[in-house]
Design a protein around this nucleic acid. Structure first.
Lengths: 215, 215
DNA sequence: AACTATACGGAAAGCCTTTCCGGTTATGCA
DNA sequence: TGCATAACCGGAAAGGCTTTCCGTATAGTT
């Protein structure tokens, strides 16, 4: 639990110094770090129960802190969501190399997309948040794209090069499309999302040769 | 403008008496009907400007009535949305026969799905509302399914029978999927939705023979 | 032990939805 | 035409949520 996720402000340190993890500005006061941990834990629990757009107070109460504290550490709701799911997003991105090593490009692509689907579909409300238009979630799409875009880009490129899929679909488009298809639908559950993403993947396969000769 | 849409309560009169259009309970008082018309007109305008989840007050103000009046005639926000888009949804459903007459089953299906896409994608926030989970919009998905489900069902059946698409996808799934794909995406506009729906349609074509022999 | 930068917590402000009811007005009847 | 009244109007009020703000408390330091 005592992970030192750097919230609010310490922007995704893509270009940090050598080895420096996130100690950029100063050391956090002990109680502050404790509260951040409590908040992340509480948020994780509440997100699972009531979705990512649960009332802020619910999270603060469960964490045993005031709402003021929550907002100071995570000024935007998306900051909290980002922090909570960061590890899982990373894991998703990291799964690509293994899949590439174990399967052909086309299969690797398909399997990775289904893994991404699984992640999104089981996080109640996450997919919706990605497209809500609510300014509170503004930063999320960018974060997802930045983290997963290159990963999917490589997979797509490889699969297209091997002629297994068409070459005219961008990684961003696909990430958004899958996220959209993972929106919860009345009654239906994850199974629906799986089916539809499968359909989309088949669509990628459909015009494979044509698009290749065209480009 | 002076259409006599029957709001709130006068459920879709699928089984009205002979010729009776919507005079079921009683005649509406003249000012009431006037206000309903104003509200519909205002809602249409505001939906176009600020999306379907614009503040109720904004609509009431533009219509020149109090919020109380709005809520009396349209207790749920979905009632208002439904009333505003009813004609367009009907037009969408009615387009199917023409398409069927003019093209082969596969093409007719594809063209109809694109027409549906066009409708959704140009109504800012409509797609989002369909899946928002917000109780205010609860009735919408059912309405769309009920109105468009049978239409798409026929198209699918015909296309599957002719072997142009696989037979293992339901009309409901597809309606939801397209609605999902029409969710607005940063920067991109309708073009994105068109592309992705096209991909999905290609997915339908992909396994055509396999699914046919399998069934 | 005392001092100060940091951080806490909840009250307050602001926005939105939804309900409610005293006042108004259209409508049918004499 | 004039009246009685059911139907309808409009906005105030209640309740919920987010976000800001600031007096108070405390960790870390000397």
């Amino acid at each position: 639990m005592t992970d030192n996720t750097a919230p609010a402000g310490a922007g995704s340190n893509g270009s940090a110094g050598p080895g420096a993890l996130e100690r950029a500005p100063r050391r956090l006061r002990a109680d502050a770090q404790r509260n951040i941990d409590s908040l992340l834990e509480a948020a994780k629990a509440v997100f699972g129960t009531s979705g990512v757009d649960a009332p802020a107070k619910e999270i603060a109460d469960l964490a045993g802190v005031g709402v003021g504290t929550l907002y100071r550490h995570f000024p935007q709701r998306s900051d909290l969501v980002k922090a909570v799911f960061q590890r899982e997003v990373d894991a998703c991105a990291d799964a690509a190399p293994e899949l590439t090593a174990a399967h052909g490009p086309g299969v690797a692509l398909a399997k990775w997309l289904h893994r991404y689907t699984e992640f999104l579909a089981t996080k109640r409300g996450l997919a919706a948040a990605l497209h809500s238009g609510d300014p509170a979630f503004d930063a999320l799409p960018g974060y997802f794209m930045g983290r997963l875009g290159p990963t999917l880009g490589s997979l797509l490129e490889a699969a297209a090069a091997s002629g297994e899929i068409r070459a005219d679909v961008s990684a961003e488009d696909l990430l958004y499309a899958v996220a959209n298809l993972c929106m919860p639908v009345a009654e239906e559950g994850v199974a629906y999302s799986r089916r539809m993403v499968g359909l989309l993947v088949d669509g990628l396969r459909y015009g494979a040769d044509a698009s290749r000769s065209r480009s």
